[in-house]
Simulated assay, not measured.
Amino acid sequence: MAVDPLIELRDVNKHFGELHVLRDISLTVGRGEVVVVIGPSGSGKSTLCRAINRLETIESGTILIDGEPLPDEGKDLARLRAEVGMVFQSFNLFAHKTVLANVSLAQVKVLGRERREADRRSRQLLDRVGLADQADKFPAQLSGGQQQRVAIAR
């Protein structure tokens, strides 16, 4: 079965000083495919994800998103980051904002959506992760798993 590649890494290498964190990594993630990266602490999982989002630079290799090289800087990179999300190990939810406000914020600030439309879309996303009934709560009122799902919806 042919894969419709969305993300491709070819011989990617990344060092932190003498530590060779990513060594000749090649990976293809097909459109609609779900991939899980597992390994011990310090094995490079987060570095790999950060490289795909261009939050880390690589020394060698190629990263393609939808067949195009990962943008270096500027508007193309900003456009890519507006379309791609990453949930970090600490979810970075705003404690003083409700769940709904946390999910809507980037839609208003980055995508330029009207608040009403952003809230409507946020409620749909919260429903998809099983948290529609938690929209008016604050992060501290949720379990860790619920907070992670809010971050995924965001």
Rank of each mutant, 00 (worst) to 15 (best):
I63A: 03
V103H: 05
R128W: 07
E114A: 11
Q134R: 15
F138A: 00
R23Q: 15
E8M: 04
T47E: 13
I152L: 15
T62G: 14
H15M: 10
L125G: 04
L64G: 06
T47C: 14
L125N: 13
P139N: 13
S143M: 06
R31P: 00
L131F: 03
L142Q: 05
D11Q: 15
P5L: 04
L142I: 04
R79I: 07
E8N: 02
A78F: 06
Q107P: 13
F94C: 08
S90I: 03
R54L: 04
R120Y: 03
V84D: 01
R50W: 12
N92W: 06
S143F: 07
L125A: 14
Q147D: 00
S104P: 03
L70S: 08
R23I: 01
Q124V: 07
Q107A: 12
I38N: 02
A2D: 12
P40E: 14
A2H: 10
L142N: 03
I7K: 09
A51R: 05
L55G: 01
L70F: 08
R31D: 09
A51D: 09
V3A: 12
I58F: 04
Q148A: 00
G144F: 10
D119M: 05
Q89P: 04
V129W: 08
K137G: 04
D11V: 03
A78C: 04
V29P: 01
L27P: 05
D24S: 14
I25S: 02
E117W: 00
L27M: 12
L105E: 15
Q146C: 06
A95N: 08
E18D: 13
R50C: 11
S90G: 08
Q134D: 07
G61F: 10
V3Q: 13
A78V: 11
P139V: 10
Q134E: 13
A51S: 15
C49A: 15
S104T: 11
V29F: 07
E73W: 05
G112Y: 01
D76M: 08
L9A: 14
Q134N: 09
A132C: 03
D11C: 03
V3W: 00
L48N: 02
D76P: 08
P139W: 11
L80R: 12
G44K: 08
G130T: 11
A118D: 13
D133G: 14
F138C: 02
T98W: 02
I7D: 10
L142F: 02
R50T: 13
D133K: 11
L55T: 05
S26V: 03
D136F: 02
D76R: 15
R154S: 05
R115D: 02
G39L: 07
A153H: 01
G30H: 12
L111N: 12
Q147P: 01
H20D: 06
Q148C: 00
E56H: 14
R81N: 07
T62A: 15
H15E: 08
E114Y: 00
A95F: 00
L19Q: 12
D136K: 02
N13Q: 12
V21S: 10
K109E: 15
G74W: 09
A101C: 01
